[in-house]
Amino acid sequence: MGQAIVVTSGKGGVGKTTTSANLGTALALLGHKVCMVDTDIGLRNLDVVMGLENRIVYDLVDVIEGRCRLEQALIKDKRFESLYLLPAAQTKDKDDVKPEQVKEIIGRIKQLFDFAIIDCPAGIEQGFRNAISGADRAIVVTTPEKSAVRDADRVIGKLHSEQIEEPKLVVNRIRPNMLKTGDMLSIDDICSVLQIDVIGIIPDDDYVIKASNNGEPIVINPQSKAALAYRNIARRILGDPVPLMSLEEKPGFVERIKKFFKLG
């Protein structure tokens, strides 16, 4: 029996879908059977980010309404054997499905996979309730912006009232140089308000946008710092106590030489 993890945020555009795609891929890279579920009905994106858009035949709503079996709607990833995607419907609406129906599907996916990663839509309405209905754990994504932290706080409150205890926090799109100058909310600032455990911090990385446009999750790019951050989160989900990565830029070659001579 696997576990279902919902990736949510309240605010839109903070990186829920990117986080879902990369955590799913990272967990698959570590040898687990993973199914990513896109619950953003009407505004599906996860398939695009994964580069699987053109393989969609059936979707979540088709399964719920009995037009196909669950196995028929699951799309196998083109890179990893153990990674699957259940896409959302694009022509329907979030109000067309009920939380109990999603919960039932998630329950069936948990029988077949080690992990179900549920990509939640923005907002706290029907789509949110659908997404969290089947989840065992939750990951709340925020960025170091006041508005995103405010919405994350609201969502954490909602998760508590839905009995999903102890959600974990991902702080996305951190810009280390802005942190240094104090122009960006620090991780400590965010934690002192939200009062939940941080499971990962992800530096802002140009590769993410490039990878997303190419339909490739960033985790498979070894040059990217964000990729390492996502892999670390996956390991922490599995219970491996990986320390949070340092956001300090590695000094360049010239700087290292300078430093060496100063010390010497």
């Binding site: 006041k146 919405d151 706080d153 609201r154």
Partner: peptide
């Protein structure tokens, strides 16, 4: 507890609240 954004805590009388009241709460 914590009063998070969007939550409202109401009480008749005096209240000693142990915890944070977040922006929006």
């Amino acid at each position: 507890g914590t009063v998070r954004s969007g939550q409202v805590l109401q009480h008749e009388g005096n209240l000693l609240f142990l915890g944070d009241i977040n922006p929006g709460g």
